[in-house]
């Protein structure tokens, strides 16, 4: 019989477990403390639990932390971790140090269903959702976990296509009984699945990033099939009804493609559709992937695009490319090769 994992359970779930096992109620808090605040590798190391309580737990559960299978290091300090998921599929996680800011980019699915034209992850198809435990494990099981300052849900998969587990992982990251991180240090990135977006905004305080990539319907449809059913104008309409710009931020990701979405027409239209939304735009250089018909805009074009958007009052920055030499940069995560072995 496969034993269930304790790691990834919320306090409420843990309370149900200890009740079922007829352990004292306070044991739930002790266990979450061991799971999310201390560094142990086995239930037996939960030394403030009675020996009999540990035996009862061991009979049905394992701790559930998973070490990485492989680590690659970039010349710029970025590291890419390979983890094995519970379904024997692989996922990748990026650790991106930058002065005092240490960001982990977590995956939420093995592969992705969304089929964006510019993304490597989509080329491996979809192999499954990650559990909350597998999402949190990507932070908790890297060498640098104690120095992590920020988390971005921008790895493999579409977070809002696995919303229940993403929300649960956010609860673990931000609760006092969990990793106790501020939700203001966490950003969830989505292509914009409107019903799930509404639920995310209602149930979480984390920042939101939306993959925009073109302000024009016909272009965005070519790049991102999701535009067929959840068009960006509907996503923006929903965002307008929320209070962004103070405690909680919304940003728009914009990969720059040569001669496709980098013209004056695009600047004008972006200013038009984002008018009235307190937001920022992150411009991202495109990292070419195999069989792609797309090229990156030049550095000069990206810089000019940024300046013109800033001049129109939209705070615009250029995201530094990190970890490109180890395929850890934006849009390059893929575990297709590992799964073919």
């Amino acid at each position: 019989m496969n034993k269930d994992r304790l790691f990834g359970k919320t306090l409420k779930e843990m309370q149900a477990i200890v009740k079922k096992l007829e352990l004292p109620g306070f044991t739930a808090g002790q266990i979450t403390d061991w799971l999310y605040k201390k560094k142990i590798s086995h239930i037996d190391e939960m030394t403030n639990l009675s020996k009999s309580a540990r035996e009862i737990l061991n009979a049905s559960y394992v701790l559930g932390l998973e070490s990485s299978q492989k680590v690659q290091s970039s010349t710029d300090g970025t590291k890419k971790y390979l983890f094995n998921s519970s379904s024997e599929k692989f996922i990748e996680t990026a650790f991106i140090p930058d002065k005092d800011r240490h960001t982990v980019c977590v995956s939420t699915q093995v592969g992705c269903k969304m089929g964006c034209l510019f993304c490597m992850t989509g080329k491996q198809g979809f192999q499954g959702n990650l559990t909350a435990g597998e999402i949190v494990n990507q932070v908790r099981s890297i060498d640098e976990w104690e120095s992590v300052s920020n988390i971005v849900y921008m790895g493999m998969g579409e977070p809002l296509d696995n919303l229940d587990e993403v929300l649960k992982s956010l609860e673990i990251f931000t609760s006092d009984w969990g990793l106790a991180m501020s939700p203001r240090r966490i950003t969830v990135s989505t292509i914009g699945i409107t019903p799930s977006l509404v639920e995310f905004l209602e149930k979480s305080n984390a920042h939101l990033a939306v993959s925009l990539h073109s302000p024009f319907d016909h272009e965005r449809k070519m790049l991102m099939p999701i535009q067929q059913v959840y068009p960006i104008d509907e996503v923006l309409k929903e965002i307008r009804s929320w209070d962004f710009g103070r405690q909680r931020r919304v940003s728009f990701e914009y990969i720059m493609f040569k001669d496709l979405n980098d013209t004056q027409r695009h600047i004008d239209e972006l200013a038009k559709i984002l008018n009235g939304i307190r937001c920022r735009i992150n411009l991202i250089r495109f990292h070419p992937i195999p069989d792609t018909p797309l090229d990156s805009s030049s550095d000069e074009t990206i810089a000019s695009f940024k300046d013109q958007l800033n001049a129109k009052g939209i705070i615009t920055t250029i995201r530094a490319s990190r970890g490109e030499d180890i395929y850890a940069a934006c849009g390059l995560l893929s575990t297709k090769k590992q799964m073919e072995k």
Binding site: K113, G115, G122, K123, P293
Partner: peptide
């Protein structure tokens, strides 16, 4: 159809000279 088919078919079509703006995809998710 499923994402796997759509993505693979799209790559094949592009590889065979079809302009990507002539390819319209609907993905089941």
């Amino acid at each position: 159809g499923r994402a796997e088919m759509v993505v693979e078919a799209r790559d094949i079509l592009i590889g065979r000279g079809i302009p990507f703006n002539n390819i319209i995809s609907e993905i089941y998710f």
